[in-house]
């Protein structure tokens, strides 16, 4: 099998798809107080898998909105205003759909690829691990 180094340097997605990689990246982000970006990214994936007709799904959509989007959290700061207002409208109308966080997730993912992921690959925590 490939070494962690080979797997994790391929792409952010290959890092996040690996249990140890995701865990180490999480520890790295905790130091920077940016762990919410990672939790939000996973929450979007989890939300997409939920049954849209289950009442729990609306509650989860609201929880994601409250926790990461409506305030001035590290996630909200990295999202476009139009993306945030789109999600706010969907929540207000209670007309949720499985793809409602896709655009927001894409924006957060791009942001992680451009900065946190690059910084992770040169961080002490990563270098010590490999």
């Amino acid at each position: 099998p490939d070494s962690p180094r080979t797997r994790w340097t391929k792409s952010l997605l290959s890092l996040l798809g690996d249990q140890d990689g995701a865990q180490l990246f999480r520890t790295f982000l905790e130091r920077d107080k940016h762990v919410d970006t990672l939790d939000f990214w996973f929450a979007c994936n989890g939300f997409r898998q939920m049954d849209i007709n289950n009442t729990k799904t609306l509650r989860v959509a609201k929880a994601i909105y409250k926790r990461y989007i409506e305030n001035s959290s590290v996630v909200a700061k990295q999202l476009k205003a139009a993306t945030k207002s789109y999600i706010r409208d969907v929540i207000r109308r209670q007309q949720i759909d499985s793809a409602m966080f896709d655009q927001a997730q894409t924006e957060i993912q791009s942001s992680m690829e451009d900065s946190a992921y690059q910084n992770f690959l040169t961080s002490d925590i990563y270098l010590e691990y490999i």
Partner: peptide, 20 residues
Amino acid sequence: LESEDDLLQKCITSAMPKQN
């Protein structure tokens, strides 16, 4: 009834990678 926080945490955990 589960709290929104619990539901959110479950949602996050469900999407995390399992054993390699």
